[in-house]
Design a protein around this nucleic acid. Structure first.
Lengths: 216, 216
DNA sequence: ACTCCTCTACACCAAAAGGTGTATACGTAA
DNA sequence: TTACGTATACACCTTTTGGTGTAGAGGAGT
């Protein structure tokens, strides 16, 4: 990188210990300028809009607005702001979901300071970056089955995710239908479609799938 | 505190970004001496046994040996070593489980540097410490119902947990019965008992409960 | 000896979910 | 414009689950 302007950062994570920690790690770096923090996705989006931020370090699981939604909004409104996703999970589906939402980098919380600085360097040069362990993981996942089926056939629609959440909360088709002003059979159809597309047998396994994939 | 010996710490967390972060937060503190790290419970126990450590900052979810098991082992072998649990979750059941295992403090990852230092101060004076938000949370939980019921009535038996896992995998009562060489009605009874004791409505919410409580 | 818990098992009936197939309307991407 | 995905909706019939209540056998602790 030829330009030596300090990079202004925003760290979005609901766990203060983590924002504090990342701040401490980065604040001694001379390439880093101001460091802001946000405790949820909504705060992150707001701060990106009002402050002069170059790069966001984004957690996925946050209250109010999650990292996925926040990333989409940020990229929609300020596409030049870089987003580095830092996640505990390195599930292939999540990585591709976040990258499609516009993220520039994806690193695991397992990795340390060096990895984080490398990611910042890369994204500020307009490159994408995925940490090696994750891309290996992704590779083994994708070679197992074929790329398009794992990724496309299995994706749930917005409506389906909405319904799966009510299901996990213990609502029946009837109750969900009332809540969403739908017919019972429609809710039932969505439920059945989900079972079919995810190749699952029943509601119990569907809820487990949702929990495993952080949909709840 | 009258003794001014530096406190030697061990930070046990599988996410390097977190151990790095906590190290950075604490290493400028003059009360803190050496800072060691461990990436799982096994490593934590080993290091406590061979190094001169006063206090362990312990995550719960770790591979190989989790925080609960590690805490029990440490307290068994070196009861004077303090254990501060730092968790994402502040579920009453988890707090009491960890405290029973011998932990000296329980703080949430939501809390920052100040809270962490306060916890270290307290435990080194042989006091127990639970961060305010968590104890409030606990309190509201416990006042709803009575103390013993939240904690005792809600506990699932070994058999019940075994069955809930099969349920989450999508097996029906019939299939579980075959697998465990039980009658279908017995499996059904266990399922119904769980719903009753957890005050849940159906299998979907039961699976969500299990996922939330890390039973799967 | 007595109580309490856990695991086992059953009856009866109501409600919900699952399997399969069909169908319309809407928007958008090729 | 044609095709595709999504959301909506229904029929028919089977299997599974949920609600409530009962009950014996074996183990642990008082």
């Amino acid at each position: 990188m030829t330009s030596y302007q300090p990079i202004n950062l925003l760290i979005a994570d609901d766990h203060q210990l983590i924002t504090d920690g990342i701040s401490m790690i980065l604040e001694t770096e001379k390439t880093i300028g101001e460091i802001h923090t946000a405790r949820n996705g909504r705060e992150a989006v707001d701060k990106v809009l009002i402050k002069d931020i170059d790069c966001v370090i984004m957690d996925i699981n946050m209250p109010v607005l999650n990292g996925w939604e926040a990333t989409k909004l940020i990229k929609q409104k300020k596409p030049f702001v870089k987003v580095i996703v830092v996640s505990m999970l390195c599930d292939a589906a999540i990585v591709s979901k976040m990258m499609k939402a516009g993220a520039d980098a994806f690193i695991n919380k397992d990795t340390g300071k060096t990895e984080l600085l490398k990611a910042i360097g890369k994204v500020m040069q307009n490159e994408k970056y995925i940490s090696p362990e994750i891309s290996n993981n992704l590779f083994t996942h994708l070679t197992d089955r074929n790329v398009n089926t794992t990724d496309i056939e299995k994706r749930l629609t917005v409506r389906e995710v909405e319904i799966i959440r009510y299901i996990a909360d213990g609502l029946t088709n009837h109750e969900i239908a009332d809540k969403l002003f739908l017919s019972i059979v429609t809710v039932d159809t969505h439920r059945k479609n989900m079972l079919a597309k995810l190749k699952l047998k029943n509601t119990a396994s569907l809820v487990k799938y949702a929990a495993d994939h952080k949909l709840l």
